[in-house]
Nucleic acid binder design. Structure first.
Lengths: 224, 224
DNA sequence: GGGGAAGTGTGTCATAAGTCACATAACTTT
DNA sequence: AAAGTTATGTGACTTATGACACACTTCCCC
């Protein structure tokens, strides 16, 4: 499979491009480049202009943010098939977090200028993108309000389920980082996890959470 | 001033169209219609397809939602110069609330089909709209997270400031509705308002709040 | 003008979650 | 292996806010 075809598949899996026709997708994929990163190499930093969209071909990219106290918090891991920077490539605003290669990686790169040129040539695609952005706005305002009003166990269960979808039942994350994710104190996170351990929903190890009973966890995430 | 020119002014005041050039704005305004509503007439209801954007020329439109218990909660008042339905016109999704004329009104109407046809003919405008939607997405995710994590006084002060911007220092709203706005219990809202009354920041009447000291209120809204 | 209905003011109580403080336990570095 | 560092576990306390209960007022309608 050609590099372009491979990129098209990744785009198609992302909600933002899922609606595009095969022909549109192919013409868009033809604009892509690839870029190699050594382990630990910095892809972009907070504040850099958002001049491209990236897809992971192989390897791993960590999205992290440097807290004011100098410590680093990992916000996300992007693995093969994951796409990031969709919004940045559209509006060119500066990055809000850092991205570093967690291992030697190869990325697909779609540059902002190329993408905008494409949209200008294909206004029908631009309109589809507009519709998708609108959906995202609606979805965000519904979810956010709902989400933040939920009690901590629900928010925590949701986050764990999301992480499980990416990494399987062994989630590699510290309780401190988990706390940042769900907007809660580390101690509160710990207490809730302990309670779930007693209920055999999960097991805890240093820096690791082993999800034992996803059924119960998703039930909690749905708020009963 | 022609109807179209008047509509162009309203569009220009809205963030979503502020970036458009005078020529683009004029061509867009030429697509508008007008519609008259009698007092109490229903413009659209929750679930209707979002097939147009509206601007208030004169009169008043109430955006309200029927709660499950049958009571009606007013979410917003739109007065002359206000624009609503910007997102609906772009993605055609169904309305999430009802709109009713609070008095005899005249509205500018920009139909979805006309607007989409315009965007297709003018891809540069479509790209500007895309950038604006992206900004909105970023703004939303920043604000939402921040906002919900703020303590009630801050959320309340922010909402009051926003209402003041629309209606001046005499805000006509019940404490119950205010509670819905900021996601808090009526009693909590009342207690906070009482405290502010003691500090001479505002005065309370049945169904009314008189803002006496916007300086202090905005200071609270900024979270000191 | 009498009788609701809606809006408001307040007290009491329960609870979720943050904060602080410290004990352990597990990895790293030298 | 010793020492330091990071992650985790847990208790005590505080605080904000929701929930309930009820009194009081104002408005509206018959």
């Amino acid at each position: 499979m050609s590099k372009q075809a491979e990129f098209a598949v990744i785009l198609k899996m992302n909600a933002m491009f899922a609606d595009l026709g095969a022909d549109e997708l192919q013409r868009l994929s033809n604009l892509c480049h690839t870029q190699h990163l050594a382990n630990g190499e910095v892809l972009f930093q907070k504040g850099d202009p958002g001049n491209a969209l990236f897809g992971v071909r192989r390897g791993q990219v960590r999205i992290e943010t440097g807290a004011s106290d100098g410590s680093r918090l990992t916000l996300n891991f992007m693995g093969p098939g994951d796409l990031f920077g969709e919004v940045a490539v559209l509006d060119g605003q500066s990055r809000t977090a850092d991205a570093t290669a967690g291992e030697a990686s190869e990325l697909f790169v779609l540059r902002r200028e190329d993408f905008l040129g494409f949209l200008e040539r294909e206004p029908k695609v631009a309109i589809k993108i507009i519709a998708l952005l609108c959906q995202r706005i609606r979805w965000q305002s519904e979810r956010m309000e709902e989400s933040m009003l939920q009690p901590l166990p629900v928010r925590l269960a949701r986050r764990l389920c999301a992480l499980a979808a990416d990494f399987g039942s062994e989630v590699h994350i510290s309780q401190e980082q988990l706390g940042v994710f769900v907007g809660a104190a580390r101690e509160s996170v710990n207490r809730q996890l302990q309670a779930w351990r007693k209920d055999a929903i999960l097991d805890l190890q240093r820096g690791r959470i082993l999800l034992r009973n996803m059924t119960k966890l998703t039930a909690i995430a749905r708020n009963e």
